[in-house]
Amino acid sequence: MKKEEELINEVLEGQNDSFEPLLRPYRQGILNMAYRMTGNIEEAKEICQDATIKVFKYLGSFNRERSFKNWLYKTVVNCSYDFLKKKSRYNALIAEQKKSFFDDSYNPEKNYSNMEIKEKIQNCLRVLSPKEKAVFLLRDAEGFSINEASQILGSSSNSIRTHLSRARQKLRKEFVRYSNPEKGGMFS
């Protein structure tokens, strides 16, 4: 299997066939990132295509000293922001996502407790701001470190920590509200 560096060189030399193997290891990750940012799989695929176009177009200007994976995710996150802005969805996002967020056709054989977790996480993602959502997903879904997330989103580590903390607080609220709305706590 060829190394990432070799594949980048080949694409830059004009071998377009090397572009697909270059992206292949991250294809699931970028799709899920875009999917959880928008809540719609078709929109996520559209975002991935936009990001792929940009990556191919600007591969020549990519700084080789940095991580290609981080750069790719950065492009996907930026395309997701653009997509949300373009559709003027910042304000209408919550209302629209109540209908469209995470279609239920996926994995229908899951048990009830899994359904509960799904509901809580979905509700949480609905109320997060785009930045909080991006930080939360990069750290807790994709497993990036705080430093990597700060590189991807172009923010300081402290800013990333602040957004991550807020996102987790909202997630806990959602868990508490869902589990025991009268007592106000799932563990009480």
Binding site: F19, A44, Q49, Y106, I117
Partner: peptide, 26 residues
């Protein structure tokens, strides 16, 4: 719980669709 759920519930491309997307992008 959240990390486990986010790791398990992952969407993926169909092979043909993925290749089509990359070629269209190029």
């Amino acid at each position: 719980q959240t990390r486990e759920w986010l790791t398990q519930e992952r969407k993926d491309w169909e092979e043909a669709e993925w290749k089509k997307t990359v070629h269209a992008a190029i």
